[in-house]
Design a protein around this nucleic acid. Structure first.
Lengths: 237, 237
DNA sequence: CCAATAGTGTCTGTTAGACAATATACA
DNA sequence: TGTATATTGTCTAACAGACACTATTGG
């Protein structure tokens, strides 16, 4: 049996949870759904995403990159697959499966949606959105929750927060990113030892600051993938 | 725009990497593809899988469970989503996206394919298959490789190998599973301390053995999910 | 009493975490 | 010299890894 053509095919979509740290808080990029007739969840906020376009996207990753490019001006941020969600009821139009990615953006290059519709894209504090302010379309609360859990969990033992900073960055700045995502303080001395022992940073010369002792600037040796630490952080205080 | 219906839809499939330990080696369940005309990779071995059937499967997980049930007699083994692979070229019939799961089976209930075609299902040693003996259909070598990597990596810091044993099992048996999957020896004393400290085992009374001192039998407190250890195993010797 | 496996105890080097001390800039 | 931030040093309790020892059975 050449079963493929005979079966009704589910919808295939890609959604992206795009994170950045702004105003000392973890934020996520949301888009407002169109109000056209026939569109589900008109006017509601949702994760950026949509149908895979087999004529434009060579792969799921390509599709995720396109979604990201359409909503932000960023070329190549950290992008990782989270998982997939698929069932008969999550989309009122029918059986659909979505492939979810999450991305980390430095807080500087935040030129949003240079395209036509800049008004329907905005940053929201993750904590608020998880409390359903605003309410999200589809099962996107579930997707966002999973993305945040994955992020928070990986921050405990990887160099992920480095992708939230523009280069060059300093160790105190990096520690600040860790503390914001983890939601707790981290010991200064231990933090530095860990970061430098992990051998993923490259000195790039002292950087100027407003006053006081100028800190050393660093950049990532590899902007493609995160580094895994041998042990996890532990609470302090 | 009600874009869904307008776009050509990719094929949606689910594949499952089913693992078990047999003859002191990690093995994976493969199925032989049909030889019918028009079928891709006729007669070649592949991971069990196939199209999502929107009339039978309520969700991707349901579909994975169905694939598993069709090839084995097992009711509810450990089942975890691995990720998804989708691009224009992986299936010669067209743009397709597959959702990959991996499952762990105790080596006792291995009644295979009670259905019609028992001949086209068989266990293979993972090490051999990774070396392309036999060669797999589609991109299934890549999928299997990812599944094995995930399994080996999670074994370092989770209770996953417990799902490879029928209950009740003993701590020496459990240690044996760890050593097989990890491919190295593990210290007895430290192993026991870790397992018992993780508090996921339940004593179920001494179990009889061929001779010598009878060991304590254990079962899982929760057969649904694995437990995470605070630290990773470390090499010894 | 011996062999074989199950299970426990002990020692030691390493290290994470807490915190103290020093370094370097500007005013 | 004072202050603020950056960076390094020290001390200690906890613990993993190695390995020796005891326990319990059958022969």
């Amino acid at each position: 049996m050449s079963a493929g053509a005979d079966f009704p095919r589910p919808y295939t979509t890609v959604d992206v949870a795009i994170f950045s740290v702004r105003d000392d808080a973890l934020q996520v990029l949301l888009v407002q759904r169109p109000s056209d007739a026939g569109e589900p969840f008109p006017g509601q906020w949702a994760l950026p995403g949509g149908y895979v376009d087999v004529t434009r996207d060579d792969s799921l990753l390509d599709c995720a990159r396109r979604k990201l490019r359409e909503k932000t001006a960023v070329a190549s941020p950290y992008l990782e697959q989270l998982g997939s969600w698929g069932n008969a009821t999550r989309d009122p139009r029918g059986w659909s499966a979505t492939h979810v990615y999450f991305a980390l953006l430095p807080s500087d290059d935040l030129a949003l949606a240079k395209g036509a519709n800049a008004a329907d894209v905005a940053w929201f504090e993750v904590e608020a959105v998880l409390k359903k302010r605003p309410r999200l379309a589809f099962d996107h609360h579930e997707l966002l929750q999973a993305a945040v859990e994955r992020l928070r969990s990986k921050v405990e033992y990887t160099s992920l927060p480095a992708f939230l900073l523009p280069e060059p960055f300093t160790l105190p700045q990096l520690q600040h990113m860790y503390e914001i995502v983890l939601g707790r303080a981290v010991d200064k001395s231990g933090f530095r030892t860990r970061m430098l022992a992990a051998d993923f940073l490259e000195e790039v010369g002292v950087v100027e600051s407003d006053s006081n002792r100028p800190p050393m600037g660093y950049r990532l040796k590899d902007r493609e993938k995160a580094v895994f630490f041998p042990r996890t952080f532990s609470p302090r205080g």
